[in-house]
Amino acid sequence: MSFEYHEPTSLAEAVDLGARFGADGRFLAGGTDLIIQIRRGKLRLRHVVGLHRVPGLDGIDANGSVTLGALVTHRALERHSAFQGRLRALVEGAEVVGGHQVRNVGTVGGNIVNASPAADVTPVLLTLDTTVTCAGRGGERTLPLDGFLVGPGQTALRPGELLTGLRFSALPGRSATAFLKAGRRKAMEISVVCVAARLTLDAAGERCAEVRIALGAVAPTTRRARAAERALEGRVPTPDALRAAGRLAAAESQPISDVRASARYRTLVVETLVTRALTRCLERIRDAAS
């Protein structure tokens, strides 16, 4: 697993190194996935570019819309005061990633670039209509997270390009988020299924104005359940309607059977967890209002 190690101290230098090494190199954020992949022989790299001396990549700005630097750790997400309310799902997604040791080091940006279909925080970010910003020699570009994830371990990053940050809008009132996951254990689990939901009610607090549902571990990438979202928007979120959304989400998931679970079970769990996550969103909106 031998390679050369580089530690750029500016974004420009990092971009430069990225461009120079192309497919022979990778950026290292927390390294909690990268080092394992290198050790397992899945990645053979000649250059590793450590990012933690590049300034400005680990900030959280939550005044108005939210921006997260790519090097924000799961720990930082878990503890940030701005995420304890409507954005609670960010905490719920972050706090089930590995143990403390991994969350202290592993980063949100690294997790996205790793592009695991079972990533826990990514579905939450999908429900927030997050955009990602990438920097390369050609300059900066911003694209929706949804389109950024291409396949297992694959993203729209160009060779040498670097994910620098994420951005999503603050949620309006009468909104809430929730994250749920299923696995064999109660900790240290790669999700068998994970589900994130966001619900925004209309001004009257009666109907669903905006719904986002995202699923993990049931398709080649984490992905939105758009049919379920559409079916709920404009509707009164009755228990039946939420259950119907769960059924639709299950129908539009494309799980595989693997060592962790069968496709049949995953489909069943999607239905259950989507319904529960939406119900939890609704309860949270009502709790916040009361």
Binding site: R185, A187, I190
Partner: peptide, 14 residues
């Protein structure tokens, strides 16, 4: 599942 990611021994929470 030749690794401790997928060979699942109980944690403190299990």
């Amino acid at each position: 599942n030749p690794n401790l990611t997928d060979y699942k021994m109980p944690t403190t929470l299990d």
